[in-house]
Amino acid sequence: MLAAFANPVFDSQRTFRELLQAMARPASPRALPILPPSPAPIAPAAMAILLTLCDATTSVWLQQPQREAVEHLRFHAGLRLVEQPQDADFALITDAASMPPLTSFARGDMRYPDRSASLIVQVAGFRSEGGAHFAGPGIRETESLAIDGLPWDFWQQRAALAVQLPLGIDLYFVAAQHVVALPRTTRLLES
């Protein structure tokens, strides 16, 4: 079996600080400091996030629950795997093109909007040129970013959720060593 973080206490602390900054400054790629070994189809950047945030008290849904990946996560993070997307605190999307609709995940309830899913989505890459414009809390004016490899109607699906705010889904996209967060409050501006 592959190893996990070499130094769990400090590796997860450093990873968390990048995730926190990513969530606080949406649509802006940040480099993750440590990329742990990871069995296919899980990307090392996604593994870094799972090891940092998940344990026996979190329920995780895997889009492609391949045996080696499942065993690796169970052994290193002890996390609880769930069958249904709506039961997941965290969901790992390893094939973005065929991901289930966003409405299959928990969006919280009005008194507790934090009881909602966080999605980790492995994508092909990020580009700042030719990207869409984003605004919202954490963004000074606007951020411009293109995310490659998402389903064609992804942004329509996400925009449809916006009417339910403060309910919603929070997203972490990973490509190579970078992470981009899009909390529910980030708006895609019409170009």
């Binding site: 995730l19 969530m23 606080a24 945030l53 605190d89 909602s116 966080s118 403060p166 929070d170 529910r184």
Partner: peptide
């Protein structure tokens, strides 16, 4: 950390 990330998101 999980709670803090949700706090920033909302």
């Amino acid at each position: 950390r999980r709670a803090l990330l949700k706090a920033v998101a909302i």
